[in-house]
Amino acid sequence: MARTLRDCIYGQAVADALGVPYEFRPRGTFLCTGMVGHGSHNQPAGTWSDDTSMALAICDSYRELGRIDVEDIRARFVRWYRQGAYTVDGLFDIGNATRAALERGHGLSGEWDNGNGSLMRTVPLAYTDATDDEVRAVSAITHAHAVSTEACVAMVKVARELIGGAEVADVAGDAAGRSANDIKSGGYVRDTYDAALWCLANTSSYAECVLAAVNLGDDTDTTAAVAGALAGIVYGMEGIPDEWLSALRGAEVIEACLF
């Protein structure tokens, strides 16, 4: 069955919301088994974070313009940052590099600027006609170092292969065969890339995948958001537990951005 942008975005948003209450908590200090609220950001259950908001900004730009327009996407990011666009109740989380880039008007390109803040929003680009250079340019709005831009290009290629029906084992690469102890789940872009693919490759359902991502600890919402976007492509919305979809907040915001 062909998977749509809706499958991907809801896959991301639900996983993001699962991870929000546990962000910054070390692996092994908690166990996520379902949708709960409060925790790290004191948000109601079902509230997604900056990961999904920024993905929706990209989707909304493409929905309206029918093409990749970096300046329009940047303007929508600023509206999210300044005015709370593409959120449920307003912004409550933003990465340091993303904040600095939006304040300065250009992406950060230092070696230490390779957080996962552009990767977290990049999977939906697989549903556009974005070229590799356009994917790089969208990343570079905030994260302009080659490590970040190339991770985004690679992730879009993985997502497009999954959309086309490729087997997970064929796209997961080296990450699939690692042990959990070798998978890092902090904010570094390459770690998030590997962790998302590891979760997808070592589970057999949407729920197993995203719970594995959250329970890796640390940057729980972003690891889960990326893994969840991919799992949404693989398993579809029908694979997302009904109780999680029912608990998800802001569905009207999501629906308004889809193309």
Rank of each mutant, 00 (worst) to 15 (best):
A169P: 00
G228E: 08
A213D: 06
I183W: 04
R67Y: 05
A57I: 09
N202D: 00
D242R: 15
A126Y: 00
V78T: 06
T87Q: 07
D113T: 14
C152A: 01
V88M: 13
Y127F: 15
W244H: 03
N116I: 06
A166K: 00
D191R: 07
E23V: 03
Q83G: 05
E134H: 06
D221F: 05
G110W: 05
T142W: 08
S118D: 03
N215P: 05
E134Q: 15
L18A: 11
I233E: 09
V226W: 07
I73M: 10
V138G: 02
D219E: 12
A227Y: 03
G239Q: 01
V123Y: 04
I9Y: 09
A227L: 11
A57T: 06
A130N: 09
C152N: 12
A75W: 04
D170P: 08
E208F: 06
F24A: 01
A247Q: 14
D174S: 14
V20N: 05
M54W: 00
V171G: 01
T87G: 03
E252R: 14
T33Y: 01
V171E: 10
L31A: 12
D113N: 15
V226G: 08
A154E: 13
N215Q: 11
V20R: 01
A154N: 14
H106M: 13
E167H: 10
H41M: 07
T29N: 04
Y86C: 10
P44M: 12
D113C: 14
L245E: 06
G46D: 06
G239C: 08
H143M: 09
T47K: 11
D132L: 07
I141Y: 08
Y235I: 08
V171Y: 09
E64N: 09
D93Y: 00
L65C: 08
Y206W: 15
V88T: 13
V88Y: 11
R67L: 12
T128C: 02
N114Q: 13
D51E: 01
G177T: 04
V168C: 10
L5M: 14
T98M: 13
Y235K: 03
Y62R: 00
L216R: 10
H41V: 07
A207D: 15
L162C: 07
V156T: 03
G115F: 01
I233L: 04
T98R: 14
G164L: 12
A2T: 13
A2Y: 14
L31V: 13
E208T: 02
V171Q: 08
R6F: 10
R67F: 06
L5Y: 08
